[in-house]
Design a protein around this nucleic acid. Structure first.
Lengths: 179, 179
DNA sequence: GTCTATATCAAGATAGAC
DNA sequence: GTCTATCTTGATATAGAC
């Protein structure tokens, strides 16, 4: 388990991962290549391959960082329940989060099996959110709506304005409070 | 606007599109190649390229058929409101639907811009569902939850059993009724 | 740690026979 | 309509210099 501070010593890795996300964002998951990442980060292909020996390692790095970031966001978010904290941390749908979620699409494109770690993360999230509550279907609904919001947004097909997105999110938070 | 019956005359096209979906399902959107589709459908690369002159055409065909199928499912589903019909048609999350949704991931991988038609389709769905209702945030929540369910399932990271999925869906339908 | 080759292979697409 | 070449490009990965 790496801390945010530890990443400073692995600066090159972080820069490469950032560049990889930008490539996916701009060109689509299918165009995530070592070449493209190298160009984006202003290095050579060999330089990138030193830090990530192959493409799978790069994808795994992207996934791992995405999960790590979401977990720390979850831990530091204000709120009394796991569900409330999760809504709060996904609520400020920062550009960061949207971009990081692209790692999911990239991994799905490369090798769906790689998403095992993501499945585990979701499993944990859903279990924790339902743990202290007697309305599992309602909790599931709230979590799924939040994920639907995120994924449609990442795919670029969400037909809601910023204002509407905030309204939905407020609505979800309010529902979560009532449990 | 093609009818389901019209597809019988384009049988080769349909078979190729089916094969393409299977390839994405098995190997991931990033491994959707003309070669792989040709092998899957039991034809040669040239044979596939006769029906779809290039890869974009194939992706567009996949997207178009997915949208067409969802629209007909929506039209023929029982229910009094667009939202109710939509929930009903997505409720029986048939293997067909899950597979067809993979077209979305494939297109996102190849060229995110291609998803414009999907954005329009979602726009229409959301607008119609909210048209006859005074609680837009609630309608949005229900739609987003249904989409979250579908997309997490397609990505293979949904941490809900079949039973739980049905429970969530029943819950959504019940909420939709109360509007 | 980072770079420049370079080997190897996969994939999109064309041309033309059948 | 379908097939078999074939061309060409792009991408992974390696080896070794700096």
């Amino acid at each position: 388990m790496k801390t945010a501070r530890a990443t400073r010593s692995n600066n090159a890795r972080e820069l490469i991962l950032d560049a990889a996300i930008r490539v996916v964002d701009k060109d689509g998951a299918g165009h995530l290549t070592i070449d493209a990442v190298a160009t984006e980060v202003g290095r050579s292909k060999g330089g990138v391959l030193y830090h990530f020996p192959n493409k799978r390692a790069l994808l795994n790095g992207m996934l791992a960082r995405m999960i790590e970031r979401e977990l720390t966001a979850l831990d530091t978010a204000p709120g009394n329940t796991p569900l409330g904290r999760h809504l709060h941390s996904t609520g400020n749908l920062r550009r960061d989060d949207k971009a990081a979620s692209l790692a999911l699409l990239a991994a799905a494109a490369e090798d769906p099996e790689m998403l095992g770690v993501m499945r585990d993360a979701y499993q944990q999230l859903f279990l924790q959110a339902r743990a202290d509550c007697k309305h599992p279907a309602e909790v599931n609904t709230i979590l799924l709506a939040a994920e639907g919001l995120r994924l449609l947004s990442v795919l670029g097909v969400l037909p809601l304005s910023e204002t509407e997105q905030r309204a939905v999110h407020k609505h979800l938070a309010a529902r979560a409070e009532q449990l």
